[in-house]
Amino acid sequence: MPWDRNQMAARAAQELEDGMYVNLGIGIPTLVANYVGDKDITLQSENGMLGMGPFPFEGEEDPDLINAGKQTITELSRTSYFDSAMSFGMIRGGKIAAAILGAMEVAENGDLANWMIPGKLVKGMGGAMDLVAGVGKVIVVMDHTNKAGESKVLKECTLPLTGKGVVDRIITNLGVLDVVEGGLKIVECAEGVTEDELRAATRATLV
């Protein structure tokens, strides 16, 4: 059985170490916050906040307090607020240890595409290009294949790039892959997934 969304998020949470400042993207990456356990992790929200708390209780929503997905959230005792220029200063400046984000395609050289599909609706890159260019470690969490069953892990991206050579580790429903010299290296397979199955589902050079 491949991992489900929560198992992927739980696996991604293992990448986080005590004391890290981390930015989580929208979708499965958001679930990672549920699995950090006792680790002292500070979540950054790129619209200007460190120390992001959970959703508010009903009736306690504050229009002045949202995350980068525009959802209402809460603050913690450690929270700090700052403007967008400083927020991306800390991102571009390498102060954020890791970003965990979703992707449409990842290539074996670490190229990442997750912001637009030409000819379809174009929404924009938001902060994704800054994050992948600036943070210490870029971890992609996504399904291994698209809805048509085709590998999203490729020799080369076909979609417009978000960043070139930026991805360090890929966590999919089938397993964990690292971007290394010459291609991708299998780190582990999801429980019940064989290495052959993972290889067969991957359209990239495995070393």
Binding site: P54, F55, P56, F57, E58, G59, E60, E61, P63, D64, I66, G69, K70, Q71, T72, I73
Partner: peptide, 15 residues
């Protein structure tokens, strides 16, 4: 007006 774009909450019981 300070309109909220995405109202997300959790239930008290979950706390």
């Amino acid at each position: 007006e300070k309109r909220i774009e995405q109202r997300t909450t959790r239930k008290k019981e979950e706390a």
